[in-house]
């Protein structure tokens, strides 16, 4: 197996007396989709924030292609966040500029890394809107006129336009209705396969994890209680908490 792109070792973080992360170790290889599941408050989002360099851990290291993410300067980390990495927020309003048109939103990351040709930026924006199934005539509309599902797809287009290698997703389907969720999951799956993306996705939706992920990590109270291939973990859960989690999924 090739060397993982993202390696995290012994991450520990406390919020006062509350342990948010306890000795978490995680690897993400190229083209791999890893899901982090667990109940709310189990430290999933905190783990994502630490891994993406937004929050420093008390102990432990995060390495991207061998380089320590938390030791690099802020300028380098920001460059990483808008080139090799992408971040899809749970709430599209956090990841989009609502007073900037859809095309401008998609183009922003391109312009941030130095694209200065209007025609090319617009062409790229149009092709990405097509990929996420947003009608080309909406390119100059403001995102606030979009539905929730469209906003989330726009956020994905905006994130993927610079061809990142790794995308962090924080419950991308949260707050959407079931049919929209299904389409969005389908979109994420096809795009990640097509582009060979690595994805680290946080979700509390076991079904979404089964659909998307190659590997799964189950977190509880800041600890990784179980990890392994998705089918193995979900079909043959070892840890009592995982068993509870899997058995509590509603069958439609």
């Amino acid at each position: 197996m090739t060397r993982p792109m993202l390696e995290a070792r012994g991450l520990t973080l406390h919020f006062g007396a509350i342990p948010a992360l306890v000795d978490v170790t995680i690897d993400v290889a190229e083209g791999e989709v890893v899901a982090i599941v667990g109940e709310s408050g189990s430290g999933k989002t905190t783990l994502l924030r630490v891994l993406s360099g937004l929050m420093p851990p008390d102990a432990g290291t995060v390495r991207w292609l061998g380089e320590d993410v938390h030791a690099m300067g802020e300028a380098a980390r920001r460059r990483l966040l808008r080139t090799d990495w992408g971040f899809v927020h749970q709430n599209p309003r956090d990841g989009l500029r609502l007073n900037v048109s859809a095309g401008g939103n998609v183009g922003e990351r391109l312009m941030a890394i130095g694209a200065r040709h209007y025609g090319n930026i617009r062409g790229e924006a149009l092709s990405w809107l097509a990929k996420v199934e947003i009608d080309a005539t909406r390119i100059d509309d403001l995102p606030r006129t979009f539905s929730g599902g469209m906003q989330q797809r726009l956020q994905i287009a905006r994130t993927l336009v610079t061809h990142p290698k790794l995308v962090f997703m924080d419950e991308p389907t949260g707050g959407l209705d079931v049919s929209v969720q299904a389409r969005l999951l389908d979109l994420i799956r096809s795009l990640s396969r097509e582009l060979g993306l690595s994805v680290l996705i946080v979700t509390h939706d076991i079904a979404a994890a089964r659909l998307l992920a190659d590997r799964i990590l189950v977190m509880r109270r800041g600890r990784v209680v179980e990890q392994g291939l998705t089918d193995r973990v979900l079909d043959d859960p070892q840890h009592p908490y995982t068993q509870l989690l899997v058995s509590s999924v509603l069958a439609a």
Binding site: G104, G107, E108, M111, Y118
Partner: peptide, 12 residues
């Protein structure tokens, strides 16, 4: 990049 987004918006 933000300033260029503004100029982009003008042209659009």
């Amino acid at each position: 990049g933000l300033m260029h987004v503004r100029l982009y918006e003008d042209i659009a």
